[in-house]
Nucleic acid binder design. Structure first.
Length: 411
DNA sequence: AACAACTGTCAGCAGGCTTG
DNA sequence: CAAGCCTGCTGACAGTTGTT
């Protein structure tokens, strides 16, 4: 039998530990949420090590919510499946203004309202996750998966400094926060610089770097990758004594009060003019934002309106992702293959001279989209325009006529 | 009544990246 | 190098709504 001495902790030390914790949390918030870091990484590390030392000397002071507990533990062998209490659905997309107009028209028609208020926000280019807080404590973090079942990545998400381990006392007894994990542009650049000088593999874009970091079985690697997080909604909630918000705007204000990170670029606008105005405003700021986005999201602000609009298939009728135009670049067709699918479906695929477009290197593109180019129009040796937006599959958009070789072989 | 246009659902398929 | 993850498009079909 071993006795552990209940060492009395000097009040001064306990106060210092508490101060360090709130300071470290505040620095995290400034770095990831307000985008105005107050201290250098070195200063942060120094505070962090001081807290670690105190907790080592006085284990009674070590709490599971301490910033020092984020560093990650035992490597997992696999991720357990997590069934979402409320499915994590996707959004309908729009590229053209006319589609946004059609969205607004349909919403107004269904609601019988002249003008609709919309909560609007950037559409982050990251990975959707679910964070469950029970009695204010972060207890479960999961990926979106297929929308119904994701993976338990709690250990990895604990290392994300932008994610609070504990919410203020005013938090509802059960709160499932929905949001996006991503890597800030500056952290991506720093990571790749480090990977490069260490002779390690570089990452292609922040989104894939974030996705890879989140899927690490060893959470100590995740911890070194500096992921950010922004919340944009909730899933299952037991409000308890908290008055449930009536609008998306009020919900995000509530989450902000709970110290959850919310994108400062969000807004509330009125009518179609408001939507398109916001789309243009964010589009012009896009390059100066600290994170990558691939569009903006419109949500009908009133929850009562949202309920009346309901869902269609896997997407709500009260929300729309208005994406920025796809990047398009020319490249050369090296070959055309015909793939045979499992069911025997034949799909022509163009093998392309590699081109970096839309954040990835495209080497092949389907010729399946009859709207854009018919496959008989494309020949080996042609120069074609390849388009890729966000996560959309690369497409051959058109053939440059002047590139047509007179005797190019048909496939 | 006949037809067109649209809305919604589903299965199947697609590409790229990372991990193991 | 395969499997698993992410993502979203397409076409077939059915049902609904609108137009002539």
């Amino acid at each position: 039998m071993k006795f552990v001495a209940t060492t009395a902790v000097p009040a001064k030390i306990a106060q210092r530990a508490a101060k360090l914790r709130t300071d470290l949390d505040a620095h995290n918030y400034r770095y990831y949420v307000e985008d105005t870091p107050a201290v250098s990484d070195a200063e942060y590390d120094s505070l962090f090590r001081e807290l670690e030392a105190i907790e080592r000397d006085y284990p009674a002071l070590a709490t599971p919510d301490s910033p020092t507990q984020r560093v990650g533990g035992q490597p997992a062998t696999e991720f357990d499946p997590v069934t979402h209490r409320v499915p994590m659905l996707s959004l309908n997309n729009a590229f053209a203004d006319e589609e946004a107009e059609a969205f607004d028209r349909r919403v107004r028609a269904t609601l019988g309202v002249e003008r609709v208020d919309y909560a609007v926000e950037p559409k982050f280019d990251g990975l959707a996750v679910s964070l469950v807080y029970e009695q204010g404590h972060f207890t479960l973090g999961a990926t979106r998966g297929d929308g119904y079942t994701g993976e338990n990545v709690t250990a990895n998400l604990r290392t994300v400094r932008a994610i609070p381990m504990r919410l203020p006392a005013a938090a509802p007894p059960l709160l499932e926060v929905r949001g996006e994990v991503l890597m800030l542009k500056r952290d991506f650049a720093a990571l790749n610089a480090a990977q490069g000088s260490a002779g390690e593999k570089m990452f292609v874009n922040p989104r894939n770097a974030a996705a890879g970091a989140l899927r690490q079985l060893d959470s100590t690697i995740t911890a070194s990758r500096r992921l950010a997080f922004f919340a944009y909604g909730v899933g299952a909630v037991d409000w308890g004594d908290v008055k449930p918000p009536a609008t998306q705007d009020a919900l995000l204000k509530l989450l902000t009060a709970l110290r959850l990170p919310i994108a400062s670029q969000r807004s509330v606008v009125r009518g179609l003019e408001g939507l398109l105005g916001y789309y243009r405003a964010i589009g012009s700021k896009r390059d100066n934002l600290p994170f990558q986005i691939d569009g903006v999201v419109y949500k009908v602000n009133q929850f009562e309106h949202q309920e009346r609009l309901g869902f269609v298939s896997r997407a709500p009728r009260f929300a729309l992702a208005h994406k920025f135009p796809a990047e398009e670049l020319p490249t050369e067709v090296l070959a055309i293959n015909v793939q045979v699918g499992r069911t025997g479906a034949l799909t022509p695929v163009a093998r392309l001279k590699p081109v970096f477009v839309g954040g990835v290197t495209v080497v092949s593109a389907t010729l399946h989209n009859e709207d854009e180019v018919r496959r008989k129009d494309v020949r080996v040796g042609d120069t074609v325009i390849v388009r890729r937006a966000g996560d959309v599959i690369p497409e051959v958009v058109r053939v440059l006529p002047e590139s047509r070789q007179p005797n190019a072989p048909q496939f």
